[in-house]
Amino acid sequence: MQPFYLQYEDEQIEVTGHFPGLGEPLPSFMLVDDHNNDVSLESFQDRPKALLTLLSLDENEHGGLALLQDTRRRLEKAPAVQLIVVTVDSPSSLRRARREHGLPGVALLSTLRGRDFHKHYGVLLSAYPLAGYTAPALILADVQGRVVFAERLLRSDARFDSAALGAALAALAG
């Protein structure tokens, strides 16, 4: 497997784990929501899913809130898609982010009790200064949980490929 790195300011940080590819099933997970409830991938089984991993909702320009807002705008054309946001933020931080930014219809999940998520989804940042964080990535899956779009960002201040994401969303809708 080819190493993957995230550019964060002046640092190149290795990202480890298996990043799901096109056609692969999403790995099962058990994470914690903003009300301290355990939530599994199977909770979203009847809908297409957009799984967005972020560094933190407390971060704005580097793989955080700005990336979430940009991704939400792009997903507005596909209201059937459930947006699932995963970060290392605590459930109380997720609650505060929901209170401050609204985020209706967005599932906010923490890796607090689901540390295997990082490796199973290929988003584990493995070196200083962000060791243990989740790298910014977006995975779009159909109702059956098969990946139709997958992108990890090369830079923490980048955005996802809008043309490829648009094509994947159109294929889901069609």
Rank of each mutant, 00 (worst) to 15 (best):
Q2I: 08
Q7A: 14
E9G: 00
Q12F: 11
T16P: 02
H18Y: 04
G21W: 06
L31D: 02
D33P: 07
D38I: 07
L41M: 08
S43L: 00
A50T: 09
A50C: 09
L51N: 01
L52T: 03
L54N: 06
D58V: 07
D58I: 09
N60Q: 15
N60V: 10
G63F: 12
L65S: 09
L68P: 09
D70I: 00
D70R: 15
T71K: 14
R72G: 03
R72D: 04
L75E: 08
K77I: 13
K77R: 13
P79V: 05
P79E: 05
Q82T: 13
V85L: 07
V85S: 02
V86W: 06
S92N: 09
L94P: 04
R96H: 10
R99L: 10
E100G: 00
E100N: 12
H101K: 08
H101T: 01
P104N: 11
L108K: 02
S110G: 05
S110M: 10
R115S: 13
L124F: 12
S126L: 00
A127Y: 02
P129I: 06
L130R: 14
A131K: 14
G132I: 04
Y133W: 09
A135P: 05
P136D: 06
L140F: 03
A141L: 08
D142E: 04
V148K: 06
F149K: 03
L153N: 04
L153T: 03
D157V: 15
R159I: 07
R159T: 15
S162Q: 15
G166I: 01
A167Y: 11
A168H: 05
A170D: 15
L172W: 12
